[in-house]
């Protein structure tokens, strides 16, 4: 029997599920780096976080919404992985469970589920944990790829943490003076491949860039948000560095350290919480970059990516209201 349907009679093979699956694939390199450098602790955090997010989503959809389960669209898995990527490897499992609860139940489901949340769920979960448990959330293990079972974990400050606590007089002098704090800053190569302290997923710029290239190739995201976000941070810190020669403003370090890469590639590009039009995406990304630099350089916190993205998330409806393409045949004289 022939069927009748409305045009178009054909569709692209990309659907929500394949898009989300591609994001999960793009996240895998960073996960492998985390497990390699932080050992079993990282593996535990990732597994706990993903499992907890999927569980919360299933429970809410099944028992509160009374709808068919939505866990097979991979979005809870992404939230779980991103939440894990934003946590230190030594965090206890019950905290991860709470973080996942906040991320899925409060930040996502309370707004109505996939597509309706205002804020990035993983970031809300992370910020909640960060404010509630500041000690555990800033216990940064040093990477050690020989110590998979975490037999001997040493902790230290992150690169941005070191920069934050430099005072102006010492930082004005250059590295050659042998300042002890400055000596702790890893070199560019270590930061690039990720042999440095930090949250699970943010350490390796290389792995994140691989993920970015994969997502661009699969046309999951466009280049606008990562480019303008990272570009803004690089430009602003670069200008300040050139003006002051202060090592705290050194742009390449800012680019490779902290959560900037993770945020710009995976967090700020989240479909649901970023603007829809190209123009809006650029404004959003530049705003994120600006806020990141301000928080990193002038606030009490060493790192500002998650706050910057969350703040800009709040502006997305406003950006969407005023940024949209010009309609063909209108508005030009």
């Amino acid at each position: 029997m022939l069927k009748i349907s409305t045009a178009p009679h054909t569709g692209s093979s990309t659907d929500t599920q394949t898009l989300m699956r591609d994001v999960v694939i793009a996240l895998i390199p960073a996960a492998l780096v985390a497990i390699a450098f932080f050992g079993i602790g990282a593996l535990k955090v990732i597994i706990t976080s993903v499992a907890a997010c999927v569980m919360w989503e299933y429970l809410v959809v099944r028992y509160l919404f009374h709808k068919p389960s939505t866990i097979n669209n991979f979005s809870a898995i992404i939230t779980g992985m991103l939440l894990a990527f934003n946590l230190p490897p030594s965090i206890p499992a019950w905290m991860v469970l709470i973080g996942a609860f906040v991320a899925i139940v409060i930040a996502k489901m309370a707004f109505g589920g996939l597509g309706k949340n205002l804020f990035n769920p993983a970031l809300v979960g992370r910020v909640f944990l960060f404010i509630s448990f500041p000690v555990q959330m800033t216990l940064w293990a040093k990477p050690n790829w020989k110590d998979f079972l975490n037999a001997d974990v040493q902790t230290g400050a992150t690169t941005l943490g070191i920069l934050k606590h430099l005072d102006a007089s010492t930082s004005a002098t250059s590295l050659t003076h042998g300042n002890s704090a400055l000596a702790d800053i890893p070199d560019y190569w270590d930061m690039f491949i990720g042999y440095t302290g930090g949250s699970l997923g943010e350490i390796s710029a290389l792995a994140l860039l691989l993920g970015l290239i994969y997502m661009l190739w699969r046309k999951v995201i466009t280049w606008h948000i990562p480019f303008y976000y990272i570009g803004t941070v690089f430009l602003l810190t670069g200008v300040m560095w050139l003006a002051t020669k202060d090592v705290r403003y050194e742009p390449v370090t800012h680019l490779l350290s902290g959560g900037l890469m993770l945020g710009a590639v995976f967090m700020a590009t989240d479909y649901v919480t970023s603007p829809m039009s190209q123009k809006g995406k650029v404004i959003f990304a530049v705003g994120c970059g600006l806020l990141t630099v301000i928080i990193r350089l002038y606030s009490a916190y060493p790192e500002g990516v998650s706050f910057a993205i969350l703040i800009m998330n709040a502006f997305v409806p406003l950006i969407d209201k005023y940024c949209y393409p010009r309609v063909y045949g209108t508005g030009r004289k």
Partner: peptide, 24 residues
């Protein structure tokens, strides 16, 4: 030619990028 089941909008903005007229 099969029509697939409608799911929630994920605000990906692909329709905005695809529209040749610049509509939303």
């Amino acid at each position: 030619s099969r029509k697939l089941e409608e799911t929630d909008c994920i605000r990906c903005g692909k329709c905005v990028d695809a529209c040749p007229v610049g509509l939303r």
